[in-house]
Nucleic acid binder design. Structure first.
Length: 259
DNA sequence: TCAGTTGTTTATAT
DNA sequence: AATATAAACAACTG
């Protein structure tokens, strides 16, 4: 599920339960989630260190420690959980970080992304690749500049992490629906008012999603109606869906008419 | 049985 | 050169 609000939720878990705590033991149950390291190297690098205050950029979580930084990307099915003891471990807990109080668990069904180890700022940059400004931090002017720099289809532009970091498939559909923008509209066809409205609504959707730790399927939101027979919460007309930019896209043809 | 899945990378085409 | 598309990754679920 992880998009910006989910990853921000995982950052809060790490801040609350990890920051300042000593890493007593690292156990990897499935090395398939290790991307640039081995179980032995990860344990050797982190055991005995303490987690510090974590950072997030877009969908990336930077788990700084008194030693190296553990970098986490949750793909489509990852999560970070804290448990007070070693009970109730899950089949998909691929790695655990046993602390001096409780344990953090990296759970991931599909293992599309995983865990990296970074020793320097340079390592971090290299692992994250080219990232635009975080969607929560970007201001209206920079948003306008990056979105309209080139002609692109709006949906794949909004979800391009190099333009703006943090928006995924659900957030993007929600924002476009709330802003009355057709998902295949070309960015060159957006008016200044359109772009300004998109920015405001992006911020509102993010703000309302953050406390939930996900994109909530509120009754008055598009999210939650994206299924067969789903209807627009505004006027109950049938939603349409088709792939845009390779991702299943839902929209309301009445609220978001094609130009 | 088979399509579909909230992410990203790579290769290929335009 | 930049953007678009498709496949691949992996492990399910309905």
């Amino acid at each position: 599920m992880p998009e910006l609000p989910d990853v921000e939720g995982f950052r809060r878990v790490l801040q609350r339960h990890g920051a300042g705590r000593r890493i007593a033991r690292v156990a990897v149950f499935d090395t398939g989630v290790l991307r640039n390291t081995s179980a032995r190297e990860l344990a050797g690098a982190l055991e005995g260190q303490r987690f510090e205050s974590p950072d997030r950029h877009g969908k990336w979580l930077l788990a700084h420690t008194t030693g190296p930084t553990l970098i986490v990307h949750f793909g489509m099915s990852g999560a970070l959980r804290w448990c007070p003891d070693d009970s109730g471990r899950h089949k998909h807990d691929r790695a655990i970080f046993v602390l001096d109080r409780g344990e953090l668990r990296y759970r991931d069904l599909r293992k599309l992304r995983g865990l990296w180890l970074a020793h320097t700022k340079d390592d971090c940059q290299h692992i994250l690749g080219e990232q635009g400004p975080d969607a929560l931090a970007i201001g209206p002017a920079e948003f306008h500049r990056r979105l309209t720099r080139r002609k692109r289809t709006i949906k794949p532009a909004l979800t391009d992490q190099r333009l703006i970091a943090g928006l995924g498939n659900l957030l993007c559909d929600e924002i476009l629906w709330q802003a009355h923008v057709y998902p295949e509209l070309q960015t060159s066809d957006l008016s200044d008012a359109d772009v300004s409205r998109l920015h405001r609504i992006m911020r509102r959707v993010l703000r309302q999603s953050l406390p939930e730790g996900c994109v909530p399927g509120k009754p008055r939101w598009l999210t939650g109606h994206r299924n067969a027979g789903g209807r627009c919460p505004r006027h109950h007309s049938p939603l349409r869906h088709k792939p845009v930019g390779g991702r299943t896209t839902y929209w309301c043809p009445k609220c978001q008419p094609a130009p």
